[in-house]
């Protein structure tokens, strides 16, 4: 991990309230792997005070890309940055997706802006396996990166709550349909999206005995494992309470779905 000042090389509004930034950070990208994140200082003022974590959307020789949705003051200010502006960033941070090279078809499941880390993962996985991605959102404007995945030769299926694109339903409906009809057992699943979606994803993966890794999103302060602010409940059979709190920033953000205690 390194802290550096990165210039914004490109900025794109990919959809209403959704932005992609390409950052000049070869010293971060050379060590980065899919599923890791960067911790971004958005302003030198005291509001917002804390850095904001963003999963790495693309890893390129010149740096990294992030993809985010405007949800509050921090992301709004970030969306107002311009090409050429500089950002203080720390990265790469956390544990990313574990990738086995002798894998079968990999299934990626994204909810909304959860596609962000899955694009970097898809670019990596497609080097040695077939990749499918199932993307869900409320409506068609929230389905991101569709053409980019297709350009990689990746099979994309879409679900929207209102049926404005793809099937009317959610991404996990697509997953159930695919697994129910697939001849290959135990296909690896990789997911990122809202917690309720990840919970259903985990249940489906268990039903089909598929290994499943999910990337969690949470508020963070330090991002390096020092403050214990970003914990999540992890199953711990030896603990009297049957769980322990692990840090999303360094023990994750990617976890084996079986480890998460959903209660």
């Amino acid at each position: 991990m390194i802290q550096l000042t990165a210039k914004i090389l490109e900025k794109e509004e990919v959809a209403p309230d959704h932005y992609r930034l390409a950052l000049d950070a070869p010293l971060i990208s050379k060590d980065a792997s899919p599923g890791q994140f960067v911790h971004v200082k958005i302003t030198s003022q005291y509001m917002p005070l804390l850095r904001r974590p963003f999963s790495i959307h693309r890893i390129t020789p010149s740096g990294i890309e992030i993809l985010f949705r405007v949800v509050g003051t921090g992301t709004r200010l970030l969306s107002e940055k311009r090409q050429g502006d500089e950002l203080d960033i720390i990265g790469p941070l956390g544990h990313g997706f574990k990738v086995k090279e002798n894998t079968f078809t990999a299934i990626l499941v994204a909810g909304g802006v959860g596609v962000a880390p899955l694009f970097a993962l898809a670019e990596r996985l497609r080097q040695f396996t077939e990749v499918r991605i199932l993307i869900g959102s409320k409506t068609k404007t929230g389905i991101l990166c569709l053409e980019k995945f297709e350009a990689l030769g990746i099979n994309v299926q879409v679900a929207t709550d209102d049926g404005s694109l793809g099937i009317k339903g959610v991404a996990t409906d697509l997953l159930e349909d695919f697994l129910a009809t697939s001849a290959s057992p135990r296909l690896p699943i990789y997911g990122c999206g809202p917690m309720p979606m990840l919970r259903i994803l985990t249940e489906i993966a268990q039903l089909y005995s598929s290994p499943c890794q999910i990337s969690l999103e949470t508020n963070m302060a330090c991002g390096v494992g020092a403050c214990l602010g970003c914990v999540t409940k992890i199953v711990a059979p030896n603990s009297s309470s049957n769980f322990e709190y692990k840090r999303v920033c360094v023990d994750g953000p990617v976890f084996d779905a079986r480890e998460i205690l959903w209660r």
């Binding site: 005291y46 403050c227 214990l228 602010g229 709190y245």
Partner: peptide
């Protein structure tokens, strides 16, 4: 000590609240 339930942190104007609970 297991510490307090999550969420444990929230940003506030020019500051933050934490309730880590000595994990």
């Amino acid at each position: 000590r297991q510490g307090n339930p999550m969420p444990r942190i929230i940003e506030t104007p020019a500051g933050m609240l934490n309730s880590v609970g000595l994990q």
